[in-house]
Design a protein around this nucleic acid. Structure first.
Lengths: 73, 73
DNA sequence: AATATCTGTCAAGTATATTTTACTTTTTGC
DNA sequence: GCAAAAAGTAAAATATACTTGACAGATATT
């Protein structure tokens, strides 16, 4: 099951721009399921994908991906 | 060949702590070759690995991994 | 110059991120 | 309440991150 921690910061930033998971996924060049899995904390994206998400949402890596899921494994 | 861009910031932070690639790799729980490849820009690490590197080197994601290699592909 | 450590690189294998298809459940607007 | 869009989830296939082992060139240090 590999729980990491939900990324509510992405969800919030997405809501602030009125974007659906699908819209964000397309803007970022990834499947909708992948975006969903990332928000759900189901697996770790690559830094390249994280950067793309940050760019679209107008946030930095620290704002979206720094230490909220440190109880990994 | 997939060139992304060397990550000289990791190299510098590592030098500042007088750590070899091997030492950093071990501290971070990854192979020496993987650390080398990341510094060489040979592939994109996962965000989990990036966080581990940041923790060991006392830097944030933005400091080490934000936009230096945006000419990807 | 000799030895040791550090770095760059390659090939073959393993682990896991990501895709695609598809189905169910929630949310939202009318 | 109904319909449509949005969100959560799963299995099988593919792409790629990461490992292991091994070797060569570079950089000390003596």
């Amino acid at each position: 099951m590999i729980v990491i921690a939900k990324n509510l910061r992405i969800k919030a930033a997405r809501a602030a721009m009125d974007m659906s998971q699908k819209a964000l996924a397309e803007a970022v060049g990834v499947s909708r399921q992948t975006m969903n899995a990332i928000e759900q904390g189901d697996y770790n994206p690559t830094i390249k994908l994280c950067r793309a998400i940050c760019r679209v949402l107008g946030k930095t890596l620290d704002e979206l991906f720094w230490e909220d899921d440190e109880h990994e494994e």
